Computed example of a mutant assay.
Amino acid sequence: MEIGDRYHSLDAAIYPWFEDQWHRVVRLHNDKHLPHALLLSGMPGIGKARLAEAIAGYVMCHRPQSLKACGQCRSCILLNSSGHPDLYFLRPEETGKPIKVDQVRQLTEFMHNTAQQGGYRIVVLEPAEFMNISAANALLKTLEEPGRDTLLILITHQLGQVLPTVRSRCQRLDCHPPSETVAVEWLSQQLSVDAQEALQLLNVVHGAPLTGLSFKKQGHQALRADFLTALRDILRQRKTPVEVAGEFLKADLDLLLGWLQGLLADVVRILLLDSDELIRNMDMQKMLKGIAKNSTKVKIFTLADLVQVERLGLQRRQNPNKQLLLERILIDWSALVRS
């Protein structure tokens, strides 16, 4: 492992929707009841990694104040400059790859060394569901015998994918997405947009503010617009599923399937509520109402289940043939409004 993979400077922030979780951890630490392992659980894109970094900064600070690190002690200076030698980040070596057992063994060695700056040694492991079975089992020994003044902070986006024996040895810190009001206000300020634009963006990203921020900055609006237009063209028989699959072969497949999943969820809302007032993709309202009117519940739910299964497969690091997978889904999409 390269030194840059172990020692990070912090970019920590306490988002307003995590104040309860933050106060809980601070109280545990101040009362000397901080557990040796925390498991931060919640949907992606809401800031769990930033919360973990803020916790690490507070716990490692030599002169913590009531609700924040002092920012001036040796530990704080290290954390915010060159990186702290007693803080260890463990992530997959490559995007989409699992966390391997050898990585966990290196972590175990770190956990049992003496802290170079005194105080705590802290590990931030993300995402916990990416540990393969061997790695998770290797971590169990560290969780059972963590050593003195150590804290493991595990972050998971899919709690059900974390080994039960790992979950049971951590104190859970459930991280919920912010309310619509809080999220809209925050995103409006970050992007300097009005509340309506922020709300529409949040609807697209299922209420995850940081995903919305990234979505806007990375220019995903154009890709989404092109993909939704292509879906509409398929229904109108202007393009074939094979043609559209070829057009989007280089795009992030999970991103595309997430948008498609959101559209199908909106169709279900229309069917179940006999209303389009609660749909999220308001810019596709006409198409969604047309599908709800001209398709069947069996077709819609069958396709929704297929998209969910394929997304789970991608997230579990399966490596399918993207062209064939997308073609199969788009063929079923084309059949939604046909007899």
Rank of each mutant, 00 (worst) to 15 (best):
M1I: 11
A12R: 05
W17C: 03
W22A: 00
H23C: 09
R24S: 13
L28K: 09
H29N: 08
N30R: 15
K32D: 13
H33F: 11
H33G: 08
H33Y: 10
L34I: 01
H36N: 10
H36D: 09
A37C: 07
A37V: 00
G42E: 06
M43T: 15
I55H: 09
G57F: 06
M60D: 06
H62N: 12
P64Y: 02
S66Q: 08
S66W: 03
L67F: 09
L79G: 11
G96K: 04
F110Q: 00
S134D: 12
S134M: 12
L143M: 10
G147C: 08
G147V: 04
P164V: 01
T165H: 11
L173W: 07
H176C: 01
E180F: 04
V182K: 10
L187W: 09
V193A: 01
G207F: 11
A208M: 12
G212K: 01
L213F: 07
R224G: 00
T229S: 13
A230E: 04
I234F: 07
I234D: 08
L235G: 06
L235A: 02
P241Y: 11
A245K: 03
L249Q: 13
L253V: 12
L257R: 01
L260G: 06
Q261P: 05
L264V: 02
A265C: 07
V268K: 12
I279H: 00
N281S: 05
M282N: 12
M284Q: 15
Q285S: 03
T296R: 07
L306P: 05
R311N: 07
Q315S: 12
N319A: 13
P320Y: 09
L326Y: 04
W333H: 03
